[in-house]
Design a protein around this nucleic acid. Sequence first.
DNA 1: ACCTGAACACCGTTCAAGT
DNA 2: ACCTGAACACCGTTCAAGT
Lengths: 188, 188
Amino acid sequence: MPTPARTSLTAIVAAGRSILAQDGLDELTMQRVAEATGVRAPSLYKRVPGRAALVRLVAADAVAEVGRCLDAVATSGDPVSELRGQAEELRRFARADPHAFGLVFAPPTEGRVVDPSLLAAAAAPVVRVVAELVGPEQALNAARTVTAWASGFLRMELAGAFQLGGDVDAAFDYGISLLVDALGRHVR
Amino acid sequence: MPTPARTSLTAIVAAGRSILAQDGLDELTMQRVAEATGVRAPSLYKRVPGRAALVRLVAADAVAEVGRCLDAVATSGDPVSELRGQAEELRRFARADPHAFGLVFAPPTEGRVVDPSLLAAAAAPVVRVVAELVGPEQALNAARTVTAWASGFLRMELAGAFQLGGDVDAAFDYGISLLVDALGRHVR
DNA sequence: ACCTGAACACCGTTCAAGT
DNA sequence: ACCTGAACACCGTTCAAGT
C-alpha cells in the first residue's frame, strides 16, 4: 500500500546547506540531515544515492546561488564598476557562508564536483561583464583570470593564509584594481 | 622496561603524504598510516594527537616543499621571468600532487590550517621576486594578488571547473602575462 | 511506495595489559 | 617507554520487514 512521502529532495538539500553553513562539512552527516528532515537515515537513500552525492547536490545549490547573486549585482551598465561589484559580492557570499564557498571548487578527487552546466551558468554573468570590458575574443581568458584571482583570494582569506601582516581589505582592493585597470587597457 | 621506538613522526608524516598522493584525503586514515609505518593504529597516538593533527602535519610538509620549489626556481636574476617560472613551478607541483595541493589552502573550519610561519616561509620567495618588480611598499599586495590568482587558477583547473571550452594553457598564459605586465607598469 | 529497526563494515580514539 | 588487543562511539550503507 502506498505511503505519502514524508520528505523531498529539495528539503534534504536545504537541510544539508543549513547544517553545512552552521557546523561545517564534517557535520553534514546522513543522520543529521535525516533528523533535520524528520526522517530516519536509511530513508534518505530513496532520494539520494549516498552522502557523496548529497554533498555534490549541496555544492551545486551553493553554486547556483552564487550565480544568481553575480547576475543580480551587475546592473549599473558600467562594466568596470559591475566587475568590482561582482568581486565584492563574491566576497560577501564567502564570508556569509564560508563552508559552502569552500565546497564550490573542491577537487574532483574528493568526489565533489559540480555539474559543468551549473558552473557555466554561475560564471556566465562574469563572462558577460568582462566581455563588455575586453571584447568577445578575450572574454573567456579574462573572466578566468578574474575568477581565479577572486576565488583564490577569498579561499586564502578564509583559510587565514594572509599571515604576513598588512591590510587584507587593501590587498583585495589592490588586486581588483590591478585587474580592472589591466583589462581596461586591453581594449582596442 | 623501555622499548625501542618502532616508528617516528617523520616516518608517519612521510607515509601520510604518500597515501594522500596516491589515494586522496579520504584514504588518509590512521589505520592505513599505521600499516604503512609497520605499527598498529593506537601507537600513532604516541606521536600525533589525532587524525586532524596528522592531516595538518601532512599539509605543512607539502607547504614546505612548495616553498623550497618556489625558491629554487627563482635564480635567473630577471624578476619577470622568475615570476613566470614560479607560476609554472606551482602548476607543476599541483599537477604532480593534486591532493597535497588541495590541502594547502583548506579552510580552517575543516580543521586543517598550516602553521603561519610555514606559510610565510613558502610565500617568501614570491614576495622577494615581486619586490624586485614593484618595490618594497607594494610587494605584499602584489604578491598576494599573484598568489591568489595562481592558487585559484590551479584549484579550478584541478577541480575541472573550466568547462566553457577554450584553451586552458592559453588562459594560464593570459593570466600570468596580464599580471606581470600590470605589475611591471606599476614601477616608478 | 515509502519508512524503519537491525545489522554490517569501517573508522577514530581510549585504555588496561603486556614487554 | 612503547606497543597492542579489546572495547566504545559513531558513521555510511544495506535490507528484510512493516504500513
